[in-house]
């Protein structure tokens, strides 16, 4: 499996990812998928500079990331995929990227978001994206760090949030 971890985390590349998951999974590549950041060389450079030198890094649009994941699968690369939002992750899966499980690592509070877990706050758009991921056969779970508690986000949890938001 090319995708060692597909993670939704609005902090994108930070300590939990590079140190926590990075040391645990030893990926060949951290792939940050974001249309906005990929279009801004300065932002892309800042995020890329946070990755330890022993791990490769790429900052790509959502479309380009989906294509890159297919290449990685063919080449046997281990990739840690990051998106800031559930919607971007759902789009990557829809485009055919080889993703089976999605880790929800951090979706922080902002106005209009509802608490699902202490580190997962969602609005209607997020819940709709979670539903799309489930409908595409993705196994969803929330977990901040390796060894931390994994919270399944299955039909029951998503249905509950659809009623709340």
């Amino acid at each position: 499996m090319a995708v060692a971890l597909a993670r939704i985390d609005d902090r994108l590349i930070h300590g939990q990812v590079t140190v926590g998951w990075g040391q645990h999974l030893r990926p060949d590549l951290i792939l940050l998928a974001s249309n906005a950041i990929a279009a801004d060389p300065w932002q892309a450079k800042v995020y890329a500079s946070s990755v330890p030198p022993e791990i490769g890094v790429a900052v790509l649009s959502v479309h380009a990331a989906a294509a890159r994941l297919l290449e990685a699968e063919a080449a046997g690369e281990r990739v840690l995929l990051l998106t800031a939002s559930a919607g971007e992750m759902a789009e990557i899966v829809r485009l055919g990227a080889p993703v089976a499980r999605v880790n929800v690592g951090g979706m922080h509070f902002s106005a209009g978001k509802h608490e699902m877990l202490p580190f997962v706050y969602v609005d209607r758009q997020d819940v709709r994206a979670f539903r799309r991921l489930l409908d595409m056969g993705i196994v969803l779970a929330a977990q901040q760090v390796p060894g931390g508690r994994s919270h399944p986000l299955g039909q029951d949890q998503i249905t509950d949030m659809e009623e709340r938001v």
């Binding site: 902090r11 590349i13 930070h14 300590g15 590079t18 932002q43 800042v46 500079s49 946070s50």
Partner: peptide
């Protein structure tokens, strides 16, 4: 505090 953490990234983006 941390070279590659969210504080560092956010601060660099804010100073752009």
């Amino acid at each position: 505090d941390d070279y590659g953490g969210s504080c560092a990234t956010a601060s660099q983006l804010a100073c752009a």
